[in-house]
Lab assay of single mutants.
Amino acid sequence: VKKMAKAIMADPNKADEVYKKWADKGYTLTQMSNFLKSKTAGKYDRVYNGYVIHLD
C-alpha cells in the first residue's frame, strides 16, 4: 500500500487507478489509515483524503 501511495504522490494522475484497486480489494478507511501511518505526520494525508473522496 505504501508503495502505491508513494506512486500517487509522485504522479497524482495514477490516483484513480490505485484507489479503484484498493476499493476492489475491500480496503476500509481504517485499514488505509493504519497502513499509511508514518513517523512523518501528515505525509500521506493527501492520499488518504483522496481515497475518502473516491469511496464517497
Rank of each mutant, 00 (worst) to 15 (best):
M4C: 11
A23Q: 10
K43W: 08
K37Y: 09
Y48L: 15
D45A: 09
A10G: 08
K6A: 12
K39N: 13
W22D: 00
D11W: 06
K39E: 14
Y44Q: 02
K37W: 09
E17L: 08
N49W: 15
M32R: 00
A10T: 09
G26C: 10
A5M: 03
K25A: 15
Y19G: 01
L36M: 01
A15G: 05
R46I: 15
E17K: 08
A15Y: 03
Q31Y: 03
T40Y: 10
Y48I: 13
Y27G: 01
K37T: 10
K6S: 09
F35R: 03
A41E: 14
V18R: 01
W22S: 00
T30Q: 13
A41M: 11
K3P: 04
I53A: 15
K3C: 14
K14W: 07
N49R: 10
V52T: 05
Y51C: 03
Y44W: 08
H54A: 08
K37Q: 13
Y19R: 00
N49Y: 14
K25N: 12
A5F: 03
S33Q: 14
K39R: 10
K39L: 08
Y19M: 03
Y48D: 02
K2H: 05
V18F: 08
N34E: 15
D45V: 07
K21S: 14
K21N: 13
V47S: 02
V18Q: 04
A23D: 06
K39P: 09
T28G: 05
S33C: 14
K37P: 03
N34V: 13
Y51F: 08
G42L: 04
G42M: 05
E17R: 08
G50C: 08
K43M: 10
K2Y: 00
K6G: 08
A10F: 10
K39I: 09
F35W: 15
M32I: 15
W22R: 00
D11N: 12
K14Y: 10
N13R: 13
Y44N: 01
K37L: 08
F35A: 09
K20H: 10
A41W: 09
A15R: 07
K14Q: 10
D45G: 04
Y27I: 09
Y48G: 01
S38T: 09
F35V: 06
D56K: 15
A23W: 07
G42Q: 04
D16I: 11
S38L: 05
V18G: 03
M32W: 01
Y48Q: 02
D24H: 09
G50N: 04
P12H: 07
A23L: 07
V1D: 02
M4A: 11
Y44C: 07
K43V: 08
S38F: 07
K20M: 09
T28R: 00
Q31M: 14
D45Q: 08
I53Q: 14
G26K: 06
G42R: 04
K21E: 15
A7H: 07
Y48P: 00
A7T: 10
D56W: 14
I53K: 15
K25R: 13
H54K: 01
M4D: 15
K21Q: 15
M9N: 06
N34D: 14
F35S: 03
R46A: 15
K6H: 10
V52G: 07
K39S: 13
H54V: 06
K25I: 13
T30I: 13
M32A: 02
A41Q: 12
K39D: 14
D24I: 08
N49P: 03
V52P: 01
K6R: 14
A5W: 02
T30F: 13
D56H: 13
T30Y: 11
H54S: 05
D56L: 15
M32Y: 00
L29S: 08
K39A: 12
L29R: 08
T40K: 12
M32C: 07
L36Q: 01
G26D: 03
T28V: 01
H54Q: 04
H54F: 15
V47F: 04
P12V: 07
Y44M: 01
N34I: 13
N34S: 12
G42H: 09
Y48W: 06
V1Y: 02
V52F: 06
D24M: 11
K3F: 09
S33W: 14
G42I: 04
L36P: 03
W22L: 01
K3W: 09
K25L: 15
D56Y: 14
K2I: 12
L29P: 11
A5Y: 02
A10I: 11
V18T: 09
Y27P: 01
K43I: 09
V52D: 04
Y51N: 01
H54E: 03
S38R: 03
E17A: 12
M9D: 02
I8Q: 00
A15N: 03
K20S: 10
Y48M: 10
V18L: 06
Q31E: 11
M32H: 00
M4K: 05
Q31P: 00
K14C: 12
H54T: 04
I8V: 12
F35Y: 09
K2P: 03
D11M: 05
M4S: 07
N49A: 14
V1S: 03
G26H: 05
H54G: 02
L36H: 02
G42K: 05
N49E: 15
A23F: 08
T40Q: 11
L29N: 04
Y19L: 02
A5E: 02
K37S: 12
K21I: 15
V47E: 01
L55I: 08
K6L: 12
E17M: 10
A15P: 01
N49Q: 14
A7Y: 08
V52K: 14
T40C: 10
K14R: 11
V47H: 01
K20T: 10
A5I: 06
N13H: 11
L36T: 01
G50L: 05
I53V: 13
S33V: 10
H54R: 01
S33K: 15
T40N: 09
L55D: 02
K25S: 14
A10C: 12
V52N: 03
A15K: 06
V47R: 00
V1C: 08
R46F: 15
T28L: 04
V52C: 09
Y19W: 03
K37D: 10
F35K: 03
N49F: 13
Y27H: 02
